[in-house]
Amino acid sequence: MLRFIARRLLETVPVLLIIVTATFFMIRFVPGGPFTSEKAVSPEVLRNLERAYHLDQPLWRQYTTYLGQVLHGDLGPSFKYPNRTVNEIIADKLPVSLELGGLALVVALGLGLPLGVLAAARRNTWLDYVASTTAMLGVCVPTFVLGPILVLLFAIHFHGFNASGWYGPADRVLPALTLGCVYAAYIARLTRGGMLEILGQDYIRTARAKGASELQIVLRHALRGGILPVVAFLGPATAGILTGSFVIETIFQIPGLGREFVNSAFNRDYTVILGTVLLYAAMIVLLNLVVDLVQVWLNPRLKFE
């Protein structure tokens, strides 16, 4: 297993290098630059700015300098936030995104798994229909609809929560619910499908014949195999939750990295774009590795190779 992990980690290096290189050159071909604005700066100021950030050097030189910096763990200065470094911005914003993503995952699993298991165990009863319909609704209602509805209800109507902001623990509730619900819906559908497949298998019939209670069958025998599709989904989903929280961050004014990521592209803040892309790429690669490990652990038919 260790060899497997080591090999996968080694493979990550060229992947990240390709991503950084492609991003570095692609963003330079995008029209506009970090210092353009409605009120144009004078040519002298532009020259001074480019000199300050070494943008006056040849592109290949900037590229090698950047790679050298990255190897030393330095992602460079931000062009838009003059006195902040990219490292500082990420250190500032990533924990917020991680917290939001983590809470949303808890909500997603906490709601999705029981709903899916329930629907499968009571297949084709009204309970199943209600659970499936709820899940379908969850898949269909986008976060930018659900978020404002929750805010209207719980912040504006009942004054129980803030409509936006990220100050106290209470401010975590609505964003985590909003982001979590959508994924809960997917998880419920996947769990139901996975469980149904397992519940139809011979070993379940054997367990039943031996007199195992319904609860035992579902929780002890079927669940482990039934959630395999969920685990496979969780890898990309976790990455999606962590990187794709831009909408939620905007709706609730959360100072997370997702907003920084999108804004940096609009701002042409080259170093912030590169830093966040690199971070997200590394996160996705790692999460996929974790998912693979968990899958092998859950499914005895799979082996490390």
Binding site: P148, I156, A163, Q253
Partner: peptide, 18 residues
């Protein structure tokens, strides 16, 4: 000085008394 980017978010915060 609240730095709220979305105009809709801002309006909801106003209505929520923030």
């Amino acid at each position: 000085f609240h730095t709220i980017e979305g105009v809709d978010t801002e309006e909801r915060a106003y209505r929520a008394g923030q």
